[in-house]
Simulated scan of single mutants.
Amino acid sequence: MLQLVYVSSANRREAPDPASILAVSRGNNRRDGITGMLYSDGTRFLQVLEGPDERVEAAYARIQADPRHRAIVILSRRAIDAREFGEWEMAHHAPGGDADAFIERIAELAANASSDIRATFEGFAKVRRAA
């Protein structure tokens, strides 16, 4: 099984709608046996995809072709024996929301991830909170 973690920026010309991303992604992921988590704050995305190698690679290829993303960088690509993120989740932080509660939610969702991947999500959420 493959785990792929990437970060990207939202393309300002293609304003991202987290609700529509979630709806489409859940359908695709269910069909393809992919799980993971997507963190979005409206300007940046940090996502982990877990599942069969060829399905994760195909999902990533769709993401790369999606005009809502730009500056996509893979942070980690590794084989895993078991899913670390369980069911697909999406965390979204609205400006003006409770940033500390959001940081706690990210920690809960990443609790079973390897320490490096967990630190990536928690650190990213803290940096984005400060931005």
Rank of each mutant, 00 (worst) to 15 (best):
M1S: 09
Q3P: 00
L4K: 07
L4R: 06
V5H: 00
V5P: 00
Y6I: 03
S8E: 05
S9W: 04
S9L: 13
S9G: 07
E14P: 00
E14F: 15
A15L: 15
A15F: 13
P16E: 01
D17K: 10
P18C: 02
P18D: 02
A19M: 12
A19E: 15
S20T: 14
A23E: 14
S25I: 01
R26M: 11
N28L: 05
R31E: 08
D32E: 10
G33W: 09
G33A: 08
I34K: 06
G36K: 03
M37D: 02
Y39R: 00
S40D: 02
S40K: 01
D41I: 02
T43M: 10
R44K: 05
F45K: 02
F45C: 03
Q47Y: 08
Q47H: 06
G51L: 06
G51C: 09
D53L: 09
D53V: 15
E54S: 13
V56C: 10
V56H: 12
A59H: 07
A61V: 11
A61D: 15
I63N: 02
Q64P: 00
Q64Y: 01
Q64W: 05
Q64F: 02
A65Q: 13
P67L: 09
P67C: 04
R68I: 12
R70W: 02
I72Y: 05
V73C: 01
I74Y: 00
S76V: 05
R77F: 01
R77V: 04
R77G: 01
A79F: 07
A79M: 06
I80C: 07
I80G: 06
D81K: 13
A82R: 13
R83N: 05
R83M: 07
R83W: 04
F85R: 02
W88H: 05
E89I: 01
M90N: 07
A91T: 09
H93A: 10
G97M: 01
G97T: 04
D98G: 11
D98E: 15
A99S: 14
F102T: 00
F102C: 00
I103H: 14
E104L: 13
A107Q: 08
A107V: 10
E108G: 00
L109R: 11
A110S: 15
A110K: 00
A110D: 00
N112T: 07
A113W: 10
A113N: 07
S114M: 01
S115W: 03
D116F: 12
D116C: 04
D116H: 13
I117L: 07
A119T: 14
F121C: 04
F121N: 03
G123S: 15
K126V: 04
V127K: 13
R129Y: 01
R129W: 04
R129C: 08
